[in-house]
Structure formats: structure tokens, C-alpha cells
Design a protein around this nucleic acid. Structure first.
Length: 566
RNA sequence: GCGCCUGUAGCUCAGUGGAUUAGAGCGCCGGCCUCCGAAGCCGGGUGUCGGAGGUUCAAGUCCUCCCAGGCGCGCCA
């Protein structure tokens, strides 16, 4: 619908461009007015042009309207100039019927523009340290990242979903030390537990797994002697569980990139050398610095410490350079909002390696407040007292959890009430949408049972759509036709929540219609038409997209086939 | 001290990249089941869009300052 208007307007403006003696014109904007008196689609292009052409917007609007009439006579029922210079377009009924037919035959993709055009885009998300179970914040990141990837893939991008494994730093070493201590304690040795070590029950489970697989092989061995094994075994087992939790959540990654591997393959020093050859590093105080302040950062950053060790930032320089080397044209990082201070640094790295500014985007995931009975659930950091993603999935289900995560913009706070999520009450937006689907399924079931003549698929497809003329029917069709534009917006601005909002609106249009008009009646032709309308891919698609936005297929990590904690 | 995010109806939040009369859910009040699922529908809103300036023909949206809340600011990871 939006695209049809824009196509016609583009042609009209092309013609007018010469008359106006202009090289280029501003982009055509537009919206679906809420008020029916403002037509089905409105643009403010005439007002944008007013300044450029130094003419009144209403006069320009009139010129545009005349040209549109010339080029596509009869396409619109009505085109009006309104307010300060809006152009309001109204379609004839037949347009909706014809578009609906296209939708029925070809699915909504036929009406969408291919904005990705196969370009490679990488989305890195979750990337939780493999030192503990996923918490609810990770879950939100997973839901947003996953949904975004599905949207981008549908929009024509070649998408890669990636999980970055922080397996090289002190955190995993600390995990190894914690497990080592527990292991020794299981064998009755008096092993001191590391300060700030990980204290969750899962540490003991890992230790027991080591004991089960290796007996007391490491009895009396100090961490210096067997630390590498302890650490590696531990984080790999953690990773296996992360992957399993994510998979059960419906989130599967294409690639699991190990930080450690970047080091062992020498890619980190390689990346720093690349910066050096661009004269973007220098030595000071015995350390090596990256001139990040020449880009977005407010000061330079150390990449190699006095003691000769690389900083974590050095890994990230390497990692992001690697993303570019792998041919991604656009890079999206999804981080917890508490990492926002890190953005200028990474932005600097990518600019240093010549990625245009608008090709890098960080999506920040705000905190999730977990509620029960409207009261905050205490999230103590002490082991065993925080609620894991696994627990939430088990309690309320993964689809509902994901939907709720997607009902807000990523960077705004989210209250997640466990009771509302699972009580299936009207407070729960998930069920509003699902209820529409339940009613639709029921309609088809009953149409079959009551043997509505010709309820078979082919007859539904051939139904006479022109019988659909009720106000609510047209409203529902209009809503369906808005889908491509909504989807495009979600893809263009990386905002999956637009889809869940749309689905709620779509369900609303359906409920409203359903209440007022019977779908299955004595009038077979009308019944068929009505059934076919709601058989529309977009409506069923509404439900499917709830899933599509939520699920995907991909690869499980190859190097994590170890024991399982749960 | 510096930086980022947030501030819209009683509550939780949208707001299509500046535009026609600022929207939805929940809660509250009142209606709607002899027929397709009442998990629903219909009606009921006097909101300093945190405040003050500014840019613009036009600002919830852009700029500056201020206020409040959250989070960051290491040769930690």
C-alpha cells in the first residue's frame, strides 16, 4: 500500500522535476493516518518541497495531484490537499480487494521491497561469559537479537548470528579455580576457595562431572598443575549449557567465536600491527596505546600493558577487525546497557579500519525488572538467589517470554511480571494476539464441520472478494496491507518491537470485526470471502511471525559436546 | 566532575526519523453472549509530552541549559 503510493509519487515527481528545474528532490515520506477522514495514506512531501521551490505547499500539492491523475488516472478514489499542505490519498474499494488477492496468492513478501539485497550483516548478541547461568537480562538480549536477525533475513539480508565467547580472560580462570577448589573438597582435600570465586551450585556440578569422568586423577594436583584442564573443561561445560538454554529458548547461533582462538592464531598482534601500519599506535609508559581519540573516543586506550599482556580491548579490536575481514558490510553488536561506555572505543576501531559510521550499530538492552505479584523479585548476586533464564522459561514458556521481551523498545526498562506472563489474563498482551489466532482456527474447524460448501482451499482462494465491503472488513484489510511498511521499519531501524505492536493492532482489528460480523453464515459466497480474508497469510502470518520473530534454525556450537549441568 | 540512556494519562509504555485533532494496554465506570471461543467487543480522557529557552511556516520529535532516576567513566574482564 505504502509502496504503491510511493511508486506513483516517484514517477510524478520525476516528471515535475524537470518542470521545476531541480536536480534532486527530498525523499518521499508518508504515514497511515489514524483518522479515516485523512484518507488511507498521507505524505508531507509538498511541504518539504515548499522551501526548496520557494512556492506555497498547497500549490505544489495541487501540481503533484494533477500529475498523479495524469499518470495513473483512476488509481485513487480521491486525492486531497489538507491542512498546511498534506496530500491525503484514498483508495477505491477495488484496490483493497485486488491487493488482498495478491496477498493471498503470493504472501506478503510480494508486497515488500528487498532492502537487504543479499548484503552481509552480522549480529553479535548474548555473548555471556561462560562462567554462570544465563539470567533474564541475557534472555532479553537473546530475544531481541534473534528477532532482529529473523527480520533482517526476511528483509533480504544475509544474516549471521554470532556468539562471542569470552574464554581467554581472568573470569574463566576464576571459574576454573572455583571448580578446582570444589573438586578438591569433594575428594576431602582442604582446598581454599578463591576470593571472589563463583559460588553457585553449578560449580559443584561441574566438579562432580570431572570426578565422574576422570575419577581422582587430579587429586593433590595444584591449580598450577591442572588449571588449564579445569578451566577449559569448566567453561566448555558451561557453554554447552548456555547453548542448550538458548536452544530451548528458540535461539540458535550460526557461529560461536572464541576469543582464545583469536589469541592462539596470533590474530590479536596481527590486528595491532595493522593499526601500527596506519600509524595509529604509539608507546608510552612502557605500554602500547591506540590513538582512539583521533576518532570517537575521548582518550587513547592501552592495548598492550606494561607487563606485555594484551588488554581485553586488544581482543575486541582484533575481533571487530575480524568481522570486517570476514566481509560483513554492516555490524550490529547487542550489549547490556551497562556497557554503553564502551561504544566510542569500538566505534573508533571500526572507523580506523575504514568502516563507514552508519555501518556499525550497538543496540543496548536495558535492565529487566522481574516482578511477582507486582512485587520486585530480589536479584541478589549471591549464588542461588537470582532467577535464571532457564527458570523463567520453565515457569512461563519460551514463546511468551520472548514476546514480552519484545513488547518494549530494547533500550527502555522492562517490567516482567511472572504472574501476568503465565496467568493468561487479559493483562497479558501475548494472549490477546493468540486469542485472535484461536478464534480463526476455530472458524476453520467449524466451517469444515458444518460443511460449508466449498470450504476447500481452492474455493477459498477463488472466493469473490468484492463481497467484502463492511467498514470493519476494509479496516482489517487495510491493516494487513500495512504489514510490509511496518516490517520494513523494523528492519531499517533495527526495532523488532514494532512487529509485536503491529500484531496487537492487527489482532484488535480482527476482534473488532469478529464481534460485529458473522464469518460463517447461510450465504456461502460471503462466508467463503470472509474466510478467505482471514485465511490471509498475514493474519495466520501474524501468529507465525510471532513464532518467526521468535525462532530460527542454525548451528549448535561444535566444541561443546560435554556434560550437562541440568 | 565528564559521558550515555530514560522522563508522554492513575500504572506500564507506543508515537512510522519534524507535520493534519498526542495514542494503546491495564486499572476504574457503564453497556454487549437464544448464533462462529466474553482470554472478546462498544462507550466513557481538561495529559503543564520533566522544566526553561531556541531553530522552524510547523517541535513529544532537532539544538542549548537545568531538574530527577538509572548506568558507565581502570595498563579489570
Amino acid at each position: 500500500m505504502k509502496q504503491d503510493v510511493i511508486d506513483i509519487l516517484t514517477k510524478a515527481l520525476d516528471r515535475l522535476k524537470n518542470r521545476w528545474d531541480q536536480q534532486s528532490l527530498p525523499d518521499i515520506d508518508g504515514e497511515f493516518p489514524k483518522n479515516n477522514s485523512m484518507g488511507d495514506f498521507a505524505t508531507s512531501i509538498a511541504m518539504k518541497l515548499a522551501k526548496l521551490l520557494k512556492k506555497g505547499p498547497k500549490i505544489i500539492a495541487q501540481e503533484i495531484i494533477e500529475t498523479v491523475h495524469d499518470l495513473s488516472p483512476g488509481f485513487f478514489e480521491k486525492i486531497e490537499v489538507a491542512g498546511p499542505g498534506f496530500i491525503n490519498f484514498t483508495f477505491p474499494r477495488g484496490y483493497f480487494h485486488a491487493s488482498l488477492k495478491t496477498l493471498l496468492e503470493e504472501d506478503h513478501s510480494a508486497l515488500m521491497t528487498d532492502i537487504g539485497k543479499g548484503r552481509k550483516i552480522q549480529v553479535e548478541f548474548v555473548s555471556a561469559n561462560p562462567t554462570g547461568p544465563l539470567h533474564i537480562g541475557h534472555g532479553r538480549g537473546a530475544a531481541v537479537g534473534n528477532a532482529l536477525c529473523n527480520i533482517l533475513a526476511s528483509a533480504g539480508f544475509s544474516v549471521q548470528r554470532e556468539f562471542y565467547i569470552n574464554d581467554a580472560g581472568l573470569q574463566v580462570k576464576l571459574l576454573g579455580q572455583s571448580v578446582h577448589a570444589r573438586y578438591q573438597q569433594l575428594l576431602g582435600n582442604d582446598a581454599p576457595f578463591p576470593e571472589n570465586g563463583y559460588k553457585g551450585d553449578y560449580i559443584e556440578l561441574i566438579a562432580k562431572e570431572i570426578q565422574k569422568q576422570g575419577g581422582d586423577t587430579y587429586r593433590n594436583k595444584s591449580f598450577e598443575e591442572c588449571g588449564e584442564f579445569m578451566t577449559s573443561f569448566s567453561y566448555k561445560m558451561m557453554l554447552t549449557n548456555l547453548a542448550k538454554d538458548l536452544k530451548d529458548f528458540g535461539v540458535i547461533f550460526d557461529k560461536w567465536q572464541s576469543e582464545k582462538e583469536l589469541h592462539t592464531k596470533g590474530k590479536v598482534s596481527e590486528a595491532l600491527n595493522a593499526l601500527k601500519s596506519k600509524d595509529l599506535t604509539y608507546e608510552k609508559d612502557g605500554a602500547l596505546w591506540f590513538k582512539s581519540s583521533e576518532f570517537e573516543d575521548d582518550k587513547d586506550r592501552v592495548v598492550k600493558k606494561q607487563d606485555g599482556e594484551f588488554t581485553y580491548f586488544a581482543s575486541d579490536i582484533c575481533y571487530h577487525k575480524d568481522k570486517l575481514d570476514r566481509g560483513f558490510e554492516t555490524i550490529i553488536d547487542i550489549w547490556g546497557a551497562d556497557h554503553h561506555g564502551y561504544i566510542p572505543r569500538i566505534r573508533s576501531v571500526l572507523e580506523a579500519f575504514d568502516l563507514p559510521k552508519d555501518r556499525f550499530k550497538v543496540i543496548l538492552i536495558q535492565m529487566v525488572s522481574l516482578l511477582r505479584h507486582g512485587e520486585p523479585v530480589q536479584m541478589s548476586k549471591r549464588a542461588g538467589e537470582f532467577i535464571t533464564l532457564r527458570e523463567v522459561i520453565d515457569e512461563v514458556g519460551s514463546d511468551i517470554t520472548k514476546f514480552i521481551f519484545l513488547t518494549r523498545k530494547a533500550d527502555s526498562h522492562l517490567d516482567f511480571d511472572l504472574d501476568i506472563a503465565k496467568e493468561q489474563s487479559s493483562e497479558n498482551p501475548v494472549f490477546y494476539v493468540q486469542y485472535a489466532f484461536a478464534r480463526i482456527s476455530s472458524l476453520f474447524r467449524q466451517a469444515g464441520e458444518k460443511s460449508v460448501d466449498g470450504v476447500e482451499k481452492e474455493n477459498i482462494q477463488n472466493a469473490d472478494l468484492s463481497l467484502l465491503g463492511e467498514q470493519e472488513e476494509i479496516a482489517l484489510i487495510k491493516k494487513l496491507l500495512q504489514y510490509p511498511a511496518v516490517f520494513e521499519g523494523a528492519a531499517l531501524y533495527f526495532e523488532p518491537h514494532r512487529i509485536t505492536y503491529y500484531l496487537q493492532e492487527l489482532a484488535g482489528s480482527f476482534h473488532s470485526y469478529y464481534y460485529k460480523h458473522r464469518v460463517i453464515s447461510e450465504d456461502t459466497a460471503l462466508s467463503l470471502a470472509r474466510l478467505s480474508r482471514i485465511n490471509n497469510p498475514c493474519i495466520v502470518r501474524g501468529y507465525l511471525d510471532r513464532r518467526c520473530v521468535l525462532c530460527n534454525t542454525g548451528n549448535i556450537p561444535h566444541d561443546t559436546a560435554h556434560g550437562s549441568v541440568s
